[in-house]
């Protein structure tokens, strides 16, 4: 009977995967699969890439996109020291208040402050971007079916000219991987858009990969802790299941002995 149980769970798992794959098939082309450093059972974030990706975010994305769920203190997790985090925070201003006169005021940010948004509200963001709302990037990789693959494909999927016969609306740009191919965001990343502090060559691919990994981290900052805990829990449960199985079998043997005694 055990084999039935096992095959049952196996088939259920299979069904989940199949249905999930099918959900994923939408109208835009499937982005190419990339072996990210953080994928797999033992996958961890590439800390150097995260730091570079943060630089790309800071210098390129942050002018239009917010990162609401990330506080400066979170940067400690990707390898910045407490002093560096303080310095980074101090470069930004956040609104505080009201003060004793009842006025809101600006002060330099502290590590406990959240990343300041580039626009005061959604309407201001729309107004400044030709009616299109730059989405918050904290969860962008998790909110897309193909995740990091999609974001990378999008960042590297711009074409200067749409294919022949494609009618591109005014103020829109052609992208291979955006659903419907018309995207309001102009190509954000070019060769040498950022001068990397660590001297890495800033190709479009490198910049896109790094910022994608940074945004994968902002979406799932507990990934490493999760996988580490998971390994321990699963090993424990496997041993416990084996033990429980032996106990169960030995207990039931008593029933059989009773039968043969009669």
């Amino acid at each position: 009977m055990l084999k039935y149980v096992i095959s049952f769970f196996a088939s259920i798992t299979l069904v989940f995967f199949i249905t999930n794959k099918l959900y994923a098939a939408g109208d835009a082309p499937k982005p190419p699969n990339i072996d990210w450093h953080q994928e797999g059972i033992f996958g961890t974030y590439d800390k150097a890439a995260l730091i570079r990706g943060f630089q790309v975010f800071q210098e390129v994305c942050a002018s239009c996109h917010s990162l609401n769920f990330i506080a400066f203190r979170n940067l400690l997790e990707i390898g910045f020291s407490p002093e560096e985090v303080k310095l980074i925070a101090a470069e930004y201003e956040v609104e505080d208040g009201p003060d004793d006169e009842g006025e809101m005021f600006m002060r330099s940010a502290r590590p406990s402050d959240y990343w300041p948004a580039p626009f005061a509200n959604d309407k201001a963001a729309r107004a400044a971007n030709g009616g299109a709302m730059p989405p918050d990037l904290s969860l962008i990789t998790k909110s897309k079916v193909a995740g990091s693959d999609y974001l990378y494909a999008l960042l590297t999927g711009y074409r200067d000219e749409p294919p022949e016969g494609f009618e591109l609306s005014d103020g829109m740009y052609y992208n291979d991987y955006y659903p419907g191919h018309q995207i309001a965001m102009p190509q954000p990343i070019y060769e040498e858009s950022v001068e990397y502090i660590d001297g890495t060559e800033a190709t479009i691919e490198q910049l896109s990969k790094d910022v994608t990994q940074f945004l994968a981290w902002t979406a799932e900052p507990k990934l490493e802790e999760r996988k580490r805990t998971g390994l321990k829990v699963l090993i424990f449960l496997a041993i416990f299941a084996a033990l429980a199985f032996v106990i169960y079998k030995r207990t039931w043997k008593r029933l059989k002995i009773k039968d043969t005694e009669e």
């Binding site: 829990v233 424990f236 041993i239 416990f240 033990l243 429980a244 032996v246 106990i247 030995r250 207990t251």
Partner: peptide, 22 residues
């Protein structure tokens, strides 16, 4: 057989307690 079962139950009990704490 009996002592082996006792040992197993002891081991399972200890692991179960550990799991419960976990």
């Amino acid at each position: 057989e009996g002592t082996r079962r006792d040992f197993l139950i002891l081991a399972a009990g200890a692991m179960g307690a550990l799991g419960a704490v976990g």
